[in-house]
């Protein structure tokens, strides 16, 4: 194997090398030394003194610093904007009041201790005496205006007492697991309980007595 030799190149470039050697020599001006000595005597060194020292230019640092600052500010700005946008996955679903009222209403039918739903009670306190003694059907129709009840889940009390309409399928109760703006604590599945016929009769008697009182009151007013 033949070794590569740079001396071979010199032969290859012989003409070029000869011409390069023959290039005219550039000489310094005659007053070169004189000018140099004057510069030295006058200490006119230009920026040669500065060149030897490492330069810590403010601009060199200012540009990257400004860029970094802008970047940080931009990140902060973007993060803030992201906070303002409500994440639909994190937010609570809208209140499903109708189901809750309807189900409460149905559930309350089973026990004698519990009173009708709170919103209706509060409204009746604020209203006139007349409103206080409205029939159950009337109240339910008013509340229907404010809270449109789900007819599939609502129960007509009279029909319920008389046993005219059977209760809806229990599977439909599933939607009460989550609803409304308040956090709903899941307490397990609702087990259907047997109807308490006596308590229903008791409520009916109370309502009938209210109606009777109302009729009496009206007749007294007319008499006056």
């Amino acid at each position: 194997m033949r070794m590569y030799s740079y001396s071979d190149d010199e032969e290859k470039f012989s003409k070029l090398l000869a011409d390069l050697k023959e290039l005219p020599k550039i000489k310094a001006e005659e007053n070169f030394e004189y000018n140099l000595m004057i510069r030295i005597q006058n200490r006119n060194f230009g920026n040669l003194l500065e060149d030897s020292k490492p330069q810590y230019n403010i601009i060199k640092f200012a540009v990257p610093t400004t860029l970094i600052a802008f970047l940080i500010l931009f990140i902060i700005f973007v993060q803030r904007n992201n906070e303002d946008i409500e994440n639909p996955l994190m937010s609570d679903p809208p209140k499903i009041l109708e189901n809750r009222i309807a189900d409460n209403y149905g559930a309350n039918l089973s026990s004698t201790d519990q009173l009708p739903p709170k919103p209706i009670q509060e409204k009746s306190k604020k209203g006139s005496l007349k409103n206080e003694f409205k029939g159950v059907n009337e109240i339910s129709s008013n509340s229907e205006l404010k809270y449109p009840l789900n007819r599939n889940r609502s129960v007509s009390l009279d029909d319920y007492i008389s046993g005219g309409i059977p209760r809806n399928n229990n599977l439909e109760r599933g939607s009460i697991v989550k609803g409304g703006q308040e956090d709903f604590d899941f307490e397990g599945f609702l087990i259907p309980q047997p109807l308490d016929y006596n308590s229903l009769q008791k409520y009916k008697r109370m309502i009938d007595s209210i109606k009777r009182v109302e009729v009496k009151r009206d007749s007294l007013r007319r008499f006056r």
């Binding site: 550039i26 310094a28 001006e29 070169f32 000018n35 140099l36 510069r39 030295i40 060194f45 230009g46 040669l48 003194l49 030897s52």
Partner: peptide, 14 residues
């Protein structure tokens, strides 16, 4: 070129 050589000589001096 003249300026560079002058500067070279001044650097040498300094």
């Amino acid at each position: 070129c003249t300026d560079i050589v002058q500067d070279t000589m001044i650097k040498f001096y300094l």
